[in-house]
């Protein structure tokens, strides 16, 4: 019975994720619209207008483009986002109850290295290639801190299984005693989506970078995929740091969605408050400052677990 249920839900999942991504994009456009001085309504419909526009638009290719790898890179973002959400528990229910769910997430985010790079490589355009370089430079900075940040909840729960991690927070959410791990995780989500302050790979200053040569449905898939990754990352932070589906009155699944939206709102705010961090500046801070901080965070978590005999 449960497996039948799961099979139905798994068909709904990509569309639900896309819907939440659309909502995030709309909210972002509405905020930007307010800054520009256009009406908020026209901001909210902007992603729909963009989608319609891109669906009507011609696809294009360039001489010498490596079309196969290029298209794989584009479509892969959506796939990676959906695969990330597969292991997120909605209360007691999860699409894939892997004993190594945390590692699965990490594997998917390493996949993004390849996907963004292929997008930059496949176009056979100098600006796209530069965008690809930029993403890799940035990825070198965020990936190591991210991996250590991910170990903190695993230490807290003594398990790599997301249901265990979620249940270990029945007393106190991990975000309370692992704030550094959460901040690094949140920043990494923004970074692997190549968005907000970490958008150099797709930056305007590089004429769009890795997405600069895309048009039509190819561009739509990449832009949608980018927001889906962002939302998937936010959704993943819920079982890791915010107690999963725990909460009064409402069903656990609803709480997961509400908490996800709250994290997305946080990310949208952060985007407006910070300028772009250039990869070469980022490397210094990430490896000299953030890495030790994350290691201290992991050590503190480990000591607490040993002294307390389990999570707080």
């Amino acid at each position: 019975m449960d497996s039948v249920n799961g099979a139905v839900w798994v068909l709904v999942l990509p569309f639900a994720l896309a819907a939440v991504a659309l909502l995030a994009a709309a909210a972002n456009a509405a905020l930007d619209g307010r800054t520009r001085g256009v009406s908020t309504t026209s901001g909210w419909v902007a992603p729909l207008q963009e989608s319609a526009r891109l669906l009507r638009q011609q696809r294009r290719t360039l001489p010498g483009a490596d079309s196969l790898l290029w298209r794989i890179g584009g479509a892969g973002l959506v796939v990676a986002a959906v695969l990330k959400v597969l292991v997120v528990p909605f209360g007691g229910f999860t699409f894939a109850d892997l004993s190594v769910g945390l590692v699965w997430f990490n594997a998917m985010d390493v996949l993004l290295w390849a996907l963004w790079w292929l997008l930059g490589w496949g176009a056979n355009s100098a600006w796209s290639l530069v965008g690809g370089y930029r993403f890799l430079a940035q990825a070198l900075s965020y990936e190591l801190p991210l991996m250590f940040a991910l170990t903190a909840p695993a230490i807290g729960a003594g398990s790599l299984r997301l249901l265990d991690i979620q249940d270990a927070q029945s007393g106190l959410w991990f975000v309370v005693w692992m704030p550094v791990a959460f901040l690094v995780f949140a920043a990494s989500v923004v970074a692997f989506s190549s968005w907000g302050p970490f958008q150099t790979a797709t930056g305007r200053d590089a004429a769009g970078g890795v997405i600069g040569e895309l048009s039509g449905v190819d561009r739509l898939v990449v832009l949608a995929g980018r927001y889906m990754i962002l939302v998937a990352g936010a959704a993943f932070s819920v079982p890791l740091f915010f107690g999963g589906g725990s909460g009064p009155w409402l069903p656990a699944g609803v709480w997961v969605v509400i908490k996800t939206l709250a994290v997305v709102a946080l990310l949208l705010t952060v985007r407006r408050l910070f300028p772009t961090l250039r990869p070469e500046r980022l490397a210094e801070v990430a490896l000299v400052l953030i890495m030790p901080l994350v290691l201290v965070q992991v050590a503190v978590a480990a000591v607490i677990v040993v002294v307390n005999g389990g999570a707080l």
Binding site: L31, D32, T35, R36, G37, P197, Q199, T200, G203, R204, D205, R271, R272, F274, P275, T276, R278
Partner: peptide, 19 residues
Amino acid sequence: LLAVAGWETVALKVRRIRD
């Protein structure tokens, strides 16, 4: 300069003032 530096929201604000 702000657009190149990658602070889109503030660049929008400055352009709105210009407009």
